[in-house]
């Protein structure tokens, strides 16, 4: 183990089926009580997350993915400006950019995008395939955190 301060933000709406993958992973990691890892859960990323991000060495954004790689992708995040219609939600790239601009802190940032399949209804359960992807993602991320292998994992998995 290292003294790396890690923030994991799992986001999505658990009331919208597979959109709850991010919060589900966050809960699973929180339950493991890994030293040095702080877990946060929210519906979406927002501006105040920039203040939190600025306090950590490593930040992992965990969300459901609509049509991405199965069972998940793990990529590094570069700060970038966001041009969106609304700031009712933000992308990880924008949160990282705000953390740098407003608080002068640059964390290593990664996205863990877990593939989901069923988003078009209200319901608090994951689809069978999404639940399987979640299990794979939990095992993967636990290993990455325990061994401090963020950059290597992002290069290898993509």
């Amino acid at each position: 183990m290292t003294n790396t301060k890690v923030l994991l933000i799992g986001y999505g709406n658990p009331g919208r089926l597979d959109d709850g993958l991010g919060p589900a992973l966050a809960q699973a990691i929180e339950a493991r009580g890994i030293p040095g890892v702080t877990v946060d859960i929210d519906y979406q990323l927002l501006v105040e997350d920039a203040a939190a991000v600025a306090e950590y060495d490593v930040v992992i954004f965990v969300d459901a993915s609509v049509k991405g790689k199965e069972p998940f992708s793990f990529r590094s995040v570069e700060a970038s400006e966001d041009i969106t219609f609304t700031t009712h939600s933000m992308r990880p790239e924008s949160v990282v950019a705000l953390a740098e601009d407003m608080f002068g802190q640059k964390a290593q940032a990664y996205t863990l995008a877990i593939r989901g399949y069923d988003f078009n209804d209200f319901g608090e359960e994951l689809s069978e395939r999404a639940a399987a992807n979640l299990e794979s993602a939990i095992s993967f991320l636990e290993g990455v955190i325990q061994n401090n292998l963020y950059g290597d994992a992002a290069s290898a998995i993509g």
């Binding site: 959109d19 993958l21 519906y43 979406q44 459901a64 609304t86 939600s89 996205t111 988003f119």
Partner: peptide, 20 residues
Amino acid sequence: IRAYDPCLSCATHAMGQMPL
């Protein structure tokens, strides 16, 4: 539209959507 601060798509925000 923004003047009214409407809530348009708060319910889900999975990666892969195109906001506009």
